[in-house]
């Protein structure tokens, strides 16, 4: 009996010791991204006051939409502790498929492409869950497969899109000149946010990311939730590919490949921990805005675009180092 008591007291004490540290960390992860965003916007508007004019704000938001849609999907997978490295390649494949199918199927091509990409996500999720292969490896393999498919069906060429089937992705609506892409991005954020708010999905994802065996024992449908996260991630990648085609009037097998690092950077900079169990839609929106404003800021500051890659790499490492939950990592592999 006494042994049990001792154990309980020590766990209680440890709990007490731990609580303030944990919540301080979470508070930091909540305030930091917002503070960084405010500082960045402030710095750029001092350097160039034109930045705060509606026209340039709309342009910045407009350019961030494909990144936003990609990041929202990938965030769900990271939230349950995995990672989806295939999103950028999947968006490239989607761009090729849209460009190929629009002449025949008109608007239905968009629906079909999103479904195909959701299917790709489903395959990755099922392989990850059923064969119990680490998600980074499954999606790395997926990355190669989707790029291969994109190369084969496009013949490694850029495919132009004519007509105005996809004009809705990239126009300005009358009145305040609001870009349609921003409204679409806001709609995706609203839908995902409402699903997270009104259904138990958010709690399931966080439970899986925090402690998977405990979630399983508590009756959380672990396998289905994980596969669902991969499906949504795939569908978002497909939709982001469509948005990119609307912007460039062409699909290409490597169109979105350079977006992988910005996506991961946006998610972790927003405060979502790469270890899972902590994060959300709002944080990802903040993260995407930080990355977009940074990109604008770097060009305002006159930084050579060649340096941007170095910058993203350093940013990802620094952000992961800051946001990672080390109490979960016994051994870092």
């Amino acid at each position: 009996m006494s042994v049990v008591d001792k154990v309980e007291t020590t766990t209680e004490q440890r709990e007490k010791l731990r609580m303030p540290r944990m919540s301080r960390r979470q508070l930091l992860l909540t305030i930091m991204p917002v503070a960084v965003l405010v500082c960045l916007v402030g710095a750029i508007s001092i350097a160039n006051p034109n930045f705060l004019r509606p026209a340039s704000i709309w342009t910045v938001l407009d350019s961030s939409v494909p990144l936003l849609i990609l990041a929202l999907g990938a965030m769900l997978v990271i939230l349950c502790g995995g990672i989806d490295l295939s999103v950028a390649a999947l968006a490239s494949m989607a761009s090729v498929l849209v460009a190929l199918w629009v002449p025949a199927l008109e608007g239905w091509a968009v629906v079909l492409v999103v479904l195909v990409c959701a299917l790709a996500g489903l395959i990755q999720g099922v392989v990850h869950v059923v064969a119990q292969i680490p998600s980074f490896l499954v999606t790395l393999g997926g990355l190669a497969v989707w790029s291969g498919i994109a190369l084969v069906v496009s013949g490694a060429a850029t495919i132009g899109v004519s007509g105005d089937t996809l004009a809705w992705t990239f126009t300005r609506l009358t009145g305040w000149n609001i870009p349609s892409a921003v409204l679409i991005g806001a709609a995706v954020v609203a839908v995902l946010g409402l699903v997270m708010l009104l259904t138990p999905v958010r709690r399931w994802l966080i439970a899986i990311g925090s402690n998977e065996p405990a979630a399983l024992l508590a009756g959380v449908p672990v396998a289905r939730t994980k596969i669902g996260a991969f499906i949504v991630s795939g569908a978002c990648a497909g939709f982001a590919g469509v948005m990119l085609v609307g912007r460039t009037y062409s699909g290409a097998p490597t169109l979105a490949d350079s977006l992988l690092l910005p996506v991961v950077a946006a998610i972790v900079v927003g405060g979502t921990a790469i270890t899972g169990g902590f994060g959300g839609v709002g944080r990802t929106v903040i993260g995407v805005l930080i990355i977009t404003v940074l990109r604008v800021g770097l060009s305002v500051a006159g930084v050579d675009p060649s340096y941007v890659q170095i910058f993203y790499g350093a940013l990802v490492i620094a952000a992961v180092a800051l946001t990672i939950d080390r109490s979960k990592l016994l051994f870092v592999k």
């Binding site: 050579d304 340096y307 790499g313 350093a314 990802v316 490492i317 992961v320 180092a321 990672i324």
Partner: peptide, 22 residues
């Protein structure tokens, strides 16, 4: 810093390609 290696090396890869581009 106890960062998982797949994350560190992903960042390092971008840094390497960036330096090479420069």
């Amino acid at each position: 810093l106890k960062i998982p290696s797949f994350m560190t090396t992903l960042g390092m890869s971008a840094i390497g390609i960036g330096i090479a581009t420069v």
